[in-house]
C-alpha cells in the first residue's frame, strides 16, 4: 500500500458565490501520475490552487500528509509578466525560498542544485538572462527547474504543454515519466489526447470531479462524466485514447 499524500473530501470552492468546484473527492498517493482533464473554466486550476492553499474552500477539507513546502508547482506560463526584471537563475532559486531558515538566504548547496538542474534541462547557458528573453519552451524548462529544486514529493503542473513544440512536449513528458519514480505527479491539461500515454489515472473536472482509475477513457465515459472534451491529437505524439495501445 503506497503512502497517501493528499486527501480531499467533499470540497467546494466558490468565486463570487458561484461554485467552481462542488463536492470534490480525490486522493493522491505517492507514485501516482494523475492526469487532470476537463473543459476550460471547468475548475482544473482552482483544484490545483485549493491543494496549494491559494484558494479557500467554502466547505469540505483538504489534508496534506507531508510538508506544504514539498509541493513542486509549475503554473501556466501565460500567467507571468515576462517583462519582469528577474534573472533565470533567481527564478530557479525562488523554488528554494521555503527551505532556508531566513527567507532568501541561500546556501551554496542550493545554488549548486540550481545549476545542476539547469544543466540537466539544457538551459544552463541562459542563467544570467532575464526570464523575458527566453522562448516559450526555454521558459517552461526554467519553471520546471524551479518546481523541482525543492525535491518535492508531489509535483503539480498546470498546462505545461502550451506554447511549446511537439519535440519539447515529448521530452518533457518523458522526463516526467522518469521523475515519477521519485514523486507523485499531477498533470493538468485540457488536452487528454497527448497526455494519455504518460499518465496512470485520470480525473475529469467540470465543477464536479470524476475519478477514473486508468489512463484509457472513451468518449462515452467522458460524456457520462459530464466532461465535454474534444479529443485532439497532434502529429506523432502517442494518442491512444479510445483503445489500448501497444507500449513500444
Amino acid at each position: 500500500m503506497s503512502k497517501k499524500l493528499v486527501e480531499i473530501q467533499s470540497l467546494s470552492v466558490a468565486y463570487n458565490g458561484d461554485n467552481v468546484l462542488k463536492d470534490v473527492d480525490l486522493d493522491i498517493y505517492e507514485n501516482d501520475f494523475l492526469g487532470v482533464i476537463g473543459p476550460n473554466g471547468g475548475g482544473k486550476t482552482t483544484l490545483v490552487k485549493a491543494i496549494l492553499g491559494l484558494a479557500k474552500p467554502v466547505s469540505g477539507s483538504i489534508q496534506l500528509f507531508f510538508d506544504k513546502g514539498s509541493i513542486g508547482y509549475m503554473p501556466q506560463i501565460s500567467r507571468f509578466d515576462t517583462k519582469f526584471p528577474i534573472s533565470v537563475f533567481d527564478v530557479v532559486l525562488s523554488g528554494m525560498a521555503g527551505k532556508g531558515k531566513l527567507p532568501g538566504k541561500l546556501s551554496k548547496k542550493g545554488q549548486n542544485k540550481a545549476k545542476e538542474l539547469l544543466e540537466q534541462m539544457g538551459v544552463i547557458h541562459l542563467r544570467k538572462k532575464a526570464i523575458g528573453e527566453l522562448s516559450g519552451g526555454e521558459m517552461q524548462r526554467v519553471f520546471l527547474c524551479r518546481s523541482l529544486i525543492s525535491q518535492p514529493e508531489l509535483l503539480i503542473l498546470d498546462e505545461p504543454n502550451t506554447y511549446v513544440d511537439n519535440q519539447f512536449e515529448r521530452d518533457l513528458f518523458n522526463e516526467l515519466k522518469k521523475l515519477n519514480d521519485r514523486m507523485a505527479i499531477m498533470l493538468v491539461s485540457h488536452d487528454v489526447g497527448t497526455i494519455a500515454y504518460y499518465i496512470k489515472t485520470i480525473a475529469c473536472v467540470n465543477r464536479k470531479l470524476h475519478y477514473h482509475p486508468s489512463n484509457i477513457i472513451t468518449e462515452k465515459q467522458l460524456a457520462a462524466y459530464d466532461c465535454p472534451l474534444q479529443i485532439i491529437t497532434h502529429g506523432d505524439v502517442p494518442h491512444t485514447v479510445l483503445k489500448e495501445h501497444d507500449k513500444s
Binding site: 491559494l54 513546502g69 509578466d81 528577474i86 525562488s94 525560498a97 527567507p103 541561500l106
Partner: peptide, 19 residues
Amino acid sequence: FKPILYVAFDEDFARTQNI
C-alpha cells in the same frame, strides 16, 4: 531583497514557498 523580488514576480508561487 530575495523575498521581495520573488513576491513581486510571482505572488502565488511565493505563497507556496511559505513566504
